[in-house]
Amino acid sequence: MNYDIEVDNISKQFVKPDVQALEDINFNVKTGSLFGLIGADGAGKTTLFRILTTLLLADNGSAKVHGRDVVKDFKILRSLIGYMPGRFSLYTDLSVEENLQFFATLHKTTIEAGYHLIKDIYRQIEPFKNRRAGQLSGGMKQKLALSCALIHQPKVLFLDEPTTGVDAVSRKEFWNMLKNIKNQGVTILVSTPYMDEAVLCDEIALIQNGKILSIAPPSTIIAQFPDVLYSVSGSQIGKLLEDVSKFQDIKSCFSFGDTIHVTLNQGDIKGLQKELIQRGHPEVVIDTIVPTIEDCFIRLMQ
């Protein structure tokens, strides 16, 4: 098996403020796969991205991207990777086309040479190619940023929270685009705080406080969920959560949308239902459900 990203014991500590941003990070990304880095804000995702894109030096450990060391071979690496930072960072006072042209030239290539890779994305913003990048909508900005990161046909693409602050429809569209890019042979590392996007990846790493909790394909992570998961719903969700947590056999409980997800240490779920009815929730409904990635993540975090 070939790997396009190999991360070996990477650690990074910041002095001001004193934060252990990354602690012994290890993972590999298979060539041509879509790998997701899932974690809340401040988990260390961006720091890891900056180390892998040669913008930041790690304190310990080493990493290779497309077989090249991120420290020693940073010069060669910079023409092999594409990076889309979390913050929109193109020239707002240049037009769509001028931005694309500029980044193509910086990589010593032309729009035409890389057009096949971006045509599905760029076609959607091409009608606005003379508009200043600063005047584009959020979704269009993101498409332009992706086009600019891809124009030099990188082997590995790094996307740091590409869908943060983007509407649900555009997010879906965006993930379809990623699938197409992957199918053209580009290895993709994407980070996201959205759990629903995790299942769209070939493999995911759950990251929290600079540590990786679990690495596996999403289906494996879900299959590894050890308990039976119940969903409890009722009319007074606030009081219901309080009463559920008072039940003696509760292993975990947390609100999940308008329901409560519950696992038990032992005993029967009927006992919980009885008690809840006694406590004044006659309408309570309890179902057994298949856990989602979010359930797995919350379990791992505890």
Partner: peptide, 13 residues
């Protein structure tokens, strides 16, 4: 400030 230097820095310039 605009973050554009990040994009310049990852390029082989």
């Amino acid at each position: 400030e605009m973050g554009t230097i990040e994009q310049i820095n990852v390029s082989p310039i």
